[in-house]
Design a protein around this nucleic acid. Structure first.
Length: 421
RNA sequence: GUGGGUGUAGCUCAAGUGGUUAGAGUGCCGGGUUGUGGCCCCGGAGGUUGAGGGUUCAAGUCCCUUCACUCACCCCA
């Protein structure tokens, strides 16, 4: 009989890795709470239209990467490819803006995109997602970036490389778009195949092309920052000044274009050189028109998403620092001793002492080996001989010393030893 | 969706131009100590060589198909 394997691009996170996951998740909750963010938990399945409207009909994500199915022949549902649209949907559905004009939210969970898997890219992957609704002050842009960098450093990412850009707003972006299409007019046939397609779907992306023919042509194309309106220019300048207040270093990347339609004004990425081609650990930006686009009031927003798999690939920590070692191993010989061991073992566990024992009736040597493998601090040896004398041996595994203790009040004795460590 | 690379024990890898019974390290189990871990020594279990077909006296090795993994393009976290 053949075993059934996991779906392509879907990964198991095994016990030896989950400690690291819990670590970054706990740090995120901790840091975000200090900045006044609260967790929101949202479904991973939404109506397909939510993503079509939120992310944009012509984006790659919506066009070819979504897991979409017809539910019982009634309506189209989609496994979420990102979290922002869902968070805003929940925000609108529950009128959160009525209770407080500002909402600071985060959520952690899996996303789904049907791409070809490669290093740092999976069909189910996890994001730590942060959204701030209701403020368009440029200081907020800087604040959210500050929080992000603070988080990344606190989980041990050595030098987060921050890149920022401004994509302009709905009033100034069209003028750049026009300048861009004018510039490319007559050059269409020199562009690569992908870019000829992009020309019609998303001309801004041509700008970001790394292929040889295009990058040469693009070299003296109009630059985005030269086209943004005065308000957007001021906003961007203000963001930079606010980042400087905290001494945050950043690079302005005028070519950074994001793949989701909803971004406006400030966008940012954290990238690394060590992840291969999928080098973005974090992507984010402002989306001042999105809430309205999704049927709500005209409320500005900004947010970012951290790729957990990519972040974890970058954090240089050993697994052992995340896995707890037992305080105590109970080695028992004989039925009567095993009965006592069973009682003590679970008693200690309920007192918060991480305790292990053997249930297979193995030799003492074999039980000792197991205690050693677990790197237990102490081993309690309960033999038939000891039991008759109402005694037991308590061995300090690190030092290799052991002493005889009485069975009466043994719980207290051991708690004292283990806690004194 | 398109291209390249790789599939041998749980894991990491060996097996000159095809040639006996596919090996090693590590891990696992046991013994050396009839009741004491680590270091050392000895033994054991564990493989349809990803799958299917073909060439050949003979295939882990060559050919075809297929699947999986992987890297890159595209795109993105």
């Amino acid at each position: 009989m053949e075993i059934i394997t996991a779906v392509r691009g879907f990964k198991d996170i095994l016990p030896e890795e989950t400690g690291r996951w819990q670590f970054i998740e706990a740090k995120a909750r901790d840091v975000f709470a200090s900045f006044g963010f609260r967790e929101i938990r949202i479904p991973i399945l939404e109506k397909t239209d939510l993503f079509k409207r939120g992310i944009g009909e012509t984006t790659d994500i919506v066009e070819k990467e979504m897991y979409t199915f017809l539910d019982r022949g009634e309506e189209y549902l989609t496994l979420r490819p990102e979290a922002t649209a869902s968070v805003i949907r929940a925000y609108l559905e529950h009128n959160l803006y009525a209770a407080d004009p500002v909402a600071k939210l985060y959520t952690i969970g899996p996303m789904f995109r049907r791409e070809r898997p490669q290093k740092g890219r999976y069909r189910q992957f996890h994001q730590i997602d942060v959204e701030l609704l209701g403020l368009d002050n440029p200081r907020i842009d800087a604040e959210i970036i500050l929080m992000l960098i603070h988080f990344l450093k606190s989980v041990g990412l050595p030098e987060p490389g921050l890149e920022i850009n401004s994509l302009g707003c709905f009033s100034c972006r069209p003028s750049f778009r026009k300048a861009m299409t004018d510039f490319l007019k007559g050059k269409e046939d020199q562009l690569c195949g992908d870019c000829q397609r992009r020309l019609h779907t998303n001309p801004l992306r041509v700008f970001d092309c790394k292929n040889e023919p295009c990058s040469g042509i693009i070299a003296d194309a109009p630059q985005l920052p030269d086209f943004v309106c005065d308000r957007c220019r001021d906003h961007f300048k203000n963001v930079q000044e606010s980042l400087n207040v905290f001494g945050l270093s950043f690079m302005i990347n005028p070519r950074m274009v994001r793949g989701l339609d909803y971004y406006t004004k400030t966008t940012f990425e954290v990238t690394t050189d060590f992840l291969g081609a999928q080098n973005a650990i974090v992507g984010g930006g402002r989306y001042d028109g999105l809430v309205k686009e999704l049927g709500g009031p005209d409320i500005p927003g900004i947010g970012f998403a951290i790729g957990c798999e990519r972040l974890l690939a970058m954090i240089p920590v050993k697994n052992e620092s995340f896995s707890a070692k037992p305080d105590l191993f109970i080695a028992a010989l004989g039925d009567e001793s095993q009965q006592l061991a069973f009682r003590l073992c679970n008693h200690f566990r309920m007192s918060g002492i991480l305790t292990e024992m053997d249930y297979l009736g193995k030799s003492l040597k074999s039980q000792m080996k197991r205690a050693d493998k677990f790197q237990c601090a102490y081993t309690l040896i309960l033999g038939e001989k000891e039991l008759r004398e109402r005694k037991a041996e308590l061995r300090n595994m690190r030092q290799g010393t052991q002493e005889t203790i009485g069975l009466d009040g043994i719980e207290e004795t051991i708690l004292k030893f283990v806690r004194a460590r």
